[in-house]
Computed example of a mutant assay.
Amino acid sequence: MTARTARAVDVPVAGGVLRVGVWDAAPDAPTILAVHGVTSSHLAWQLLAEELPGVRIVAPDLRGRGQSNAVAGPAGMAAHADDLAAVCAHLDIAPALVVAHSMGAFVAVVFAHRHPALVRRLLLVDGGLPLSAPADLSPDELVAAILGPTAARLSMRFADTAAYLRFWRDHPAFAADWSPELEDYLVYDLVPVADGGAALRPATSYATTVEDTVDMNTRPTVTEALDDLAVPTVLVTVPRGLQNETPGLYPPAHLAALLARYPAVEHVAWPEFNHYTVVLSRRGAARLAELVTAQLSLSVA
């Protein structure tokens, strides 16, 4: 792998300023737009960037996350999709490929629907097709059912970065995949509590997480975009979920029904990963880099 550092770019969007990480490459290098998950940040793509030294990677902190957590106004898949369009306009890019993980994959599908001129191909990583979400739940119950401890963490407070890293060290998803890059990614998520105390909290807005989870699971935004999907799309699924549990986000019967409904989506299954390690581990990033390279070759063919 090649060590790379993202430079920070601030992009004006409705309600504030979006922080964007850009891993630069040669002027003639292909550009991918990378979209992170529901409580994540642009640093989710650090390992992938190191696996792809000849590729320019543009990755925003979505509104309500990372250093974009102060962006005001409504969220939801359409708002995030429009933010991606603003990023492309600000940086004057037309990405050869959109790579998106988890909730970011739902954003990417809606981005392709709302801004088709900016999307040539989609690579969706364990997200983007409807989840098997329980019906008739309140917004908080829906978030708890889908995200569980991932959402509960957003209300927690930590004395310092070491305490936060100890919390994550016990997480079953990363038992075999801890790395310095993962630590950097986790620490980036921390901000001081609003009352000026010494404690730290995750940067991700719980309210925005609820709004996004409700939108992508109960409203027609995503299904309408999928029904109109007109670009080559690959979906990667993994068998284990956010807690390394089985089944993952896409139980086999549910996934089979989705692939029958959306036959144009090309599906690949990677049995060796969970929902996090497919992006946030060295082995996941290496496997993903191979697929990105293949998709880029098709994009320019």
Rank of each mutant, 00 (worst) to 15 (best):
V279L: 08
P12Y: 15
I146H: 05
A260V: 03
A78H: 00
G21Q: 04
V35I: 11
A257S: 15
E141S: 11
R120Q: 15
L291F: 02
T204D: 00
S102F: 00
R56M: 10
H90T: 10
S40E: 13
E245M: 14
T218V: 09
A34M: 08
A81C: 08
S41Q: 13
V20A: 06
V214H: 10
A133S: 15
V107R: 02
L242E: 10
D61N: 13
T39G: 09
H254Y: 05
I146G: 09
G241H: 04
I32C: 09
R19F: 04
L296H: 07
S281R: 02
P116S: 14
V35Y: 03
P95R: 04
V35C: 04
V231M: 07
A94I: 11
V22A: 01
G248K: 00
V58C: 01
Y206K: 00
P247N: 04
L255P: 04
T237Q: 06
E141G: 13
T218W: 01
Y250E: 11
P172L: 05
H101A: 09
D160R: 02
V238S: 03
S299E: 05
M103V: 07
E290M: 07
I146Q: 12
D136L: 11
L298C: 14
Y206P: 01
F106P: 02
L255T: 07
F158M: 14
E50I: 01
V20H: 01
V278S: 06
D136T: 09
R56K: 10
G16F: 14
H36V: 08
Y276H: 12
G21R: 03
